[in-house]
């Protein structure tokens, strides 16, 4: 293994192992009940609902039969997006802001995150590791506090409602999560290959293994199936989504890896899609792109294919 290969391997490992500290609170008569957990950046909240409910059920038994959801400052959390993406998108701006305030300089107060569509295949690096400065000065609060809700008003306009129930009338969170997340994978598979055939052709056993790998965060299991989905040589198109903090706007546009013979870089895409933010007259391009929680300004001139293959092929 050459030096550069081992560096890339190191990055991939960090992406896969990235964790986020979560504190889940449930409103209770006397005082709020808390449940602390760490979740992998590339995992999903809905996979943890059963564990969370099993705990809070001790205090409020009614929670067992009603669909739950999480909220951050009144904003319902889309459980079908990876935890790391949600953290970067919803919570990280306020960490950056308070940090830059304490350093009495405001460099990047708002950022946009980009995240590959093939979310469960994509891995993330923990924020504190990617920010070298943060080690000298600890962030105000790395733990993301969310509220658990379960009343009758499930926010169907913001979130996908869980449709399946188990025999004991509790909600089958995992079954529906699987359905939604595998569909998202199919979508990105279609973009990568120009057809969803590779994933549609997977055997039931392979598909189960892929899902189990995602659910249990098992790199071996995910990788063995991933190899069958991700094109070996040339990507047809690159699945890219750009989310902008402070809005619900999502840019999702077909991105080709090459333009004629030159490779398309990250900067090319950002300038193309968001000219007001990334191609500005007064050179006040204040927005910072984040990919998998990594501030990606230094990757502007790297080809998008290279970036995504680091994320996809662990």
């Amino acid at each position: 293994m050459t030096d550069s290969e081992s560096v890339i391997y190191d990055v991939k490992e960090k992406l896969w192992n990235g964790l986020i500290k979560i504190c889940i609170k449930l409103k209770d008569d006397n005082d709020d009940k808390e449940f602390l957990l760490t979740i992998h950046r590339n995992s999903y909240f809905s996979l943890y609902f059963e564990t969370i409910i099993a705990y809070f059920r001790l205090f409020q038994p009614a929670i067992y039969e009603k669909p739950v959801w999480l909220e951050y400052e009144g904003v319902p959390i889309k459980w079908n997006l990876p935890v790391g993406l949600l953290y970067d998108f919803l919570y990280f701006p306020c960490i950056v802001a308070s940090k830059s305030q304490s350093q009495s300089q405001s460099q990047s107060q708002s950022q946009s995150q980009s995240q590959s569509q093939s979310q469960s295949q994509s891995q993330s690096q923990s924020q504190s590791q990617s920010q070298s400065q943060s080690q000298s000065q600890p962030l105000p609060n790395n733990t993301w506090t969310l509220y658990l809700k379960y009343d009758e008003n499930y926010p169907t306009t913001d979130l996908l409602p869980f449709v399946y129930k188990k025999q004991d009338r509790s909600i089958d969170y995992k079954r529906f999560s699987r359905e939604v997340i595998v569909n998202q994978l199919k979508q990105s598979c279609y973009v990568l290959n120009g057809s969803a055939k590779p994933i549609m052709d997977l055997s039931e056993i392979d598909l189960n293994q892929l899902w189990n790998g995602i659910e249990t965060h098992n790199l071996m299991m995910v990788n063995s199936i991933n190899g069958k989905i991700i094109p070996k040589y040339e990507y047809s198109k690159i699945p890219v989504r750009i989310l902008i903090s402070g809005s619900s706007t999502i840019v999702q546009s077909p991105v080709f890896p090459n333009k004629d013979t030159t490779k398309v870089t990250l900067k090319n895409i950002l300038v193309e899609q968001l000219p007001y933010l990334f191609d500005n007259p007064d050179s006040s391009n204040f927005a910072t792109p984040y990919i998998q929680g990594i501030a990606a300004k230094s990757l502007y001139d790297v080809s998008i294919q290279e970036i995504i293959s680091c994320i996809l092929q662990l």
Partner: peptide
Amino acid sequence: AVAKIPLSTSVI
């Protein structure tokens, strides 16, 4: 649907 933004983000 009206975009829901966390308060802390809109303050920023």
